[in-house]
Design a protein around this nucleic acid. Structure first.
Length: 496
RNA sequence: GCCCCCAUCGUCUAGGGGACCAGGACGUAGGCCUUUCAAGCCUAAAACGGGGGUUCGAAUCCCCCUGGGGGCACCA
């Protein structure tokens, strides 16, 4: 398939909070399209809202994006030919362009106080009208307005929506969206502080930074025509607009948002991308998961390593309808990606989790454990639970748990003693002969292999569920195995 | 209230007039395998929201209704 022209695509989060999976998904699509077309993936920080500004957010954006492997080509931290990439550092640019708009008659100063605006809104609400600016300052002669501004009167700048009129905006996924201009408000472009508002800053920066494709959330659909009007006022060519579907809560009720963050997390689910890391999810699995909410390739492939994601991604296959997130599918993808890792690489990913758990985990030890758990874990932290017994000196076990299935206490103790004898007699705990010896023992004792293995599992690991027994015992080592079996029989022989 | 968007199994989706008694995936149920748990394999239940058109023919095109979502700030 012939790729299109190199695209310049931007991810432009606002540092008002942590990056959630919806944002991560947008970043993924941005990244994929830029890489697919051989273009650039640009990171821009939209920090024009100083009231909601969170100083830690920007750093977390970096950390999240880096963890996910979505590397950007231009951004606040690495610069680039179209900087600065932080909107708060682009004030002069906004000043210059707002003047152009005013001079062209496409924007005007507004001196209405917050109180008056509030009154207007209340009145409109009483009359059941949609709240909007009433155009009070729209007709002030430009010269007079400039004088008042020069005299120091507080003001904002509003966009002068052409009236009457009708505006058609084109979204790649939805086609033409036409609205009456009467339904578009004279939005504020520049606040009284001189700070631009999203509607102005984003549009300006997208153009100035040469953005060719704008991928953003569908919450921008209502103001989409306004944005088109601003492009037209400047006489600029528009980018390709793509409004992404929103992510809904697992219930499908309401959009997944920061408001639900705590509730979601308490259910051991996270809406913040970085939390997924601590929960034992692989970045490639997270990407695979979020990528498939709102995008699909065909009717059978769902597993996408990054290289295939890039080669097979296309904007046209994006789905405009909202999608409810499904966390169990994340588990599924995580399992798939864990199994796709080389054991060496899995070991790398596992090490931090063992360290985190405070276990004396040496890489060499973990690399022995890795193949035993690779097939059976869905999240990395599960490996720790499953393998905990490898690191413990003492294995606390209840007496009842040690009794074999359908066996008496006495029979159980006897079987364990016999097993210990067999293990002691072996030259080495080499896999195949070791297993055979135990199976032979089970036969001799007239037990099913499962009965014997079950008791040994409990005695040696202290767990009902564990990695394969033979391999586990080999790793634990003969001495410790015998010691644990010995302790188990002692418990069984006690106060029978 | 007004404006905008969306609509296939519980969920994510394939489908772009006949190839669909609608395919895949997660989950669920059952089975096989099996030293536990998984993994793997097999099977099953499960959907085109409703009503009108257009057409020889509609999940696919149009309209209405309904439902869901989003937005209506000197927030993004």
């Amino acid at each position: 398939m012939m790729p299109t022209q190199p695209a310049r695509v931007r991810f432009a989060p606002s540092p008002t909070g942590r990056l959630h999976i919806g944002g991560a998904r947008t970043a993924l699509y941005d990244f994929l399209y830029a890489r697919k077309t051989g273009g650039q993936f640009i990171l821009r920080i939209e920090d024009t809202d100083r009231k909601r500004y969170d100083p830690e957010a920007e750093q977390e954006f970096y950390e999240t994006l880096r963890w996910l492997g979505l590397d950007w080509d231009e951004g606040p931290d690495i610069g680039g030919p179209f900087g600065p990439y932080r909107q708060s550092e682009r004030m002069e640019i906004y000043q210059e362009y707002i003047l152009r708009l005013i001079d062209a008659g496409s924007a005007y100063y507004c001196f209405c106080s917050a109180e008056r605006l509030q009154q207007v809104r209340e009145l409109q609400q009483k009359r059941k009208e949609p709240p909007h600016y009433d155009g009070h300052c729209r007709t002030i002669p430009p010269d007079e307005a400039k004088q008042r501004v020069a005299a120091g009167e507080p003001s904002v700048v509003r966009f002068k929506v052409p009236r009457p009129g009708r505006t058609t905006a084109v979204d790649l996924l939805r086609g033409e969206i036409a609205v009456e201009n009467s339904s578009i408000d004279d939005y504020i472009l520049l606040k009284s502080t001189g700070m631009p508002v999203y509607h102005f800053a984003a549009i300006l920066d997208d153009h100035l930074m040469g953005i060719t494709h704008v991928l953003r959330g569908s919450e921008w659909l209502p103001t989409f025509p306004l944005h088109v009007l601003i492009y037209e006022a400047f006489g600029w060519e528009q980018p390709v607009w793509v409004h992404l579907s929103v992510l809904l809560n697992p219930s499908g009720k309401g959009k997944l948002s920061k408001r639900h963050a705590n509730a979601e997390k308490s259910g051991s689910r996270a809406v913040f991308a970085l939390d997924l890391r601590e929960m034992g999810y692989l970045p490639e699995a997270v990407l695979n998961w979020i990528g498939l909410m709102g995008w699909s390739y065909d009717d059978h492939q769902e597993f996408f390593p990054m290289d295939e994601f890039i080669s097979k991604f296309s904007l046209e296959k994006l789905n405009p309808s909202p999608a409810a997130v499904n966390f169990s599918k994340l588990d599924h993808f995580n399992g798939l990606h864990i199994r796709a890792l080389s054991t060496d690489e899995l070991t790398n990913r596992l090490v931090p989790f063992f360290e985190q758990a405070g276990l004396p985990a040496e890489r060499e030890m973990i690399s022995e454990i890795t193949p035993l758990v690779q097939e059976r874990i869905r999240t990395l932290d599960e490996a720790v639970e499953m393998a905990r017994f490898f690191f413990k000196e003492e294995i606390p076990v209840d007496r009842e748990d040690l009794i074999g299935k359908n066996l008496s206490t006495d029979e159980s103790a006897h079987a364990l003693e016999q097993a210990a004898a067999v293990i002691e007699s072996l030259n080495s705990l080499e896999q195949a002969p070791f297993e055979q010896a135990l199976r032979d023992l089970a036969d001799d004792l007239d037990l099913k292999a499962g009965q014997l293995f079950g008791m040994l599992r409990m005695a040696v690991t202290g767990q009902r569920v564990s990695p394969p027994l033979i391999e586990s015992m080999t790793i634990v080592g003969r001495e410790k195995v015998l010691d644990r079996i010995q302790k188990a029989t002692t418990i069984l022989r006690q106060s029978g």
